[in-house]
Amino acid sequence: MKKLINDPKNVVAESLDGLELAHGDILRVHRDPDFIVRADAPVQGKVGIVSGGGSGHEPLHGGFVGYGMLSAAVPGAVFTSPTPDPIVEATKAVDGGAGVLHIVKNYTGDVLNFETAAELAEAEGITVKSVIIDDDVAVQDSTYTAGRRGVAGTVFVEKIVGAAAEQGADLDAVVELAQRVNANVRTMGVALTACIVPHAGVPSFDLPEDEIEIGIGLHGEPGRERIKLEPVDVIVDRMLDPILSDLPFASGDRVAVLVNGMGGTPLIELYIALRRVGQVLEEKGISVLRTLVGNFTTSLEMQGMSISVLRLDDEMIELYDAPVQTAALRWGR
């Protein structure tokens, strides 16, 4: 294993130190328990937006804490859900009197721990509601989940919902919007290589040099099938077919597209993939209005990518375009 780390046990803590040093104008890191919070939290009268999950998917979620997006993020150990205690403390830290929304990716540990944290926070007088994100079309059940996994489509949910909260939407409106975005986004991933969890020191699964896995999960969970490596246009077509048929998307739809790197894929390859996505959608009469390309929801150093397609409505477009200032996403300020 070759990694730029010290002690594997300290990877998350030392990473949080660096995040705060780099972006102390936007966020602050709370210790014992560990969570990341907006520098100006709590904002009175504003719905707090909290998400989190296992580390190793950076910039998700800490990189999206800031104006127009998340109020707080709770990192667990690598690929491990945070426990309820830091989730409760993060919830309290962003409570401005208007309630708090938990955005929870559909992994069993995350769902259970956020559910417990919500109950504990409500016992202290904070109104908490939760939305489960399950945008992955690859498999119905997986190693970590009952039902579909929550993956890179979470970025769209956090951006759009965060903008609504920034503009003063109440908790019920924010919850409805989060559910609507989740209902209209679909994602599929592909792995070229496995990743190595620092405390394990070995690849998380075996993938022959000439094979790829279609439908891989963020933690290396099995996907739909293993096939021989193909040209990227063919791979993109394989990924888009289940995405577009699942909703289903149709001619006349307006969409946002996220071509997301898994951590080890160079941008030049992601742009080639986006080129093919654009060609396919144009052929189907689907208009691409917004795009994101890069590492937004990673799996350590895994080589591969995911494609997310979000069907937009007028409100989503306005909120997507609204100003945002986070470590990993910023425009309009």
Rank of each mutant, 00 (worst) to 15 (best):
H61R: 10
W331C: 03
D7E: 11
A41M: 11
F79W: 13
D141W: 15
T143Q: 12
G68V: 09
I268C: 06
C195F: 15
L267W: 00
A250S: 15
T265Q: 04
N184D: 03
P242D: 05
I103N: 01
P208G: 11
L192N: 06
A256Q: 03
V181F: 13
A178K: 08
G99P: 07
C195W: 08
Y271G: 01
T127A: 13
D170Q: 11
D206H: 15
N260S: 09
L267Y: 04
D110P: 01
F296L: 07
I307Q: 01
S251G: 15
V29E: 03
V277L: 03
R149P: 04
D85K: 14
V236A: 01
T83K: 09
P323T: 10
G24P: 02
V29N: 03
I133M: 09
F64K: 04
G54M: 10
G109H: 00
D136L: 15
V37Y: 06
D85I: 09
G162C: 04
Y107C: 08
P242A: 04
A273N: 06
G62V: 07
G220W: 14
L21R: 14
S142T: 11
N6G: 14
S81N: 14
P222M: 15
V157E: 08
D134G: 10
F296K: 04
P82F: 11
G68L: 12
A118V: 03
V259R: 05
V111C: 10
V29H: 00
A164T: 07
I216G: 00
R290A: 02
S245D: 15
V128M: 09
P266Q: 12
E269W: 02
V94Y: 15
R311I: 00
V128T: 12
H57S: 03
N260A: 07
P86Y: 03
H199R: 15
G304Y: 05
V139C: 12
E315W: 12
P248C: 09
Q279N: 12
P203H: 15
V65G: 12
V185A: 01
L177F: 05
K2R: 10
S142V: 04
G125F: 14
T80C: 10
P231N: 12
V234I: 07
I5K: 06
M1S: 13
K92S: 10
S306M: 02
A327I: 15
D32G: 06
L60N: 08
E213L: 01
A191R: 01
G217I: 03
V47M: 11
L289V: 13
E122P: 09
G278T: 06
L329H: 03
A163K: 01
P266T: 09
S15C: 11
D25F: 09
P84E: 04
G332C: 07
D241K: 13
V197L: 10
R254H: 12
G215S: 02
V190E: 00
L16Y: 12
G217T: 06
G223N: 11
P8Y: 10
A39W: 06
E158D: 14
M188N: 01
L281P: 07
I196L: 08
E20T: 11
M239K: 05
V43N: 06
V47K: 09
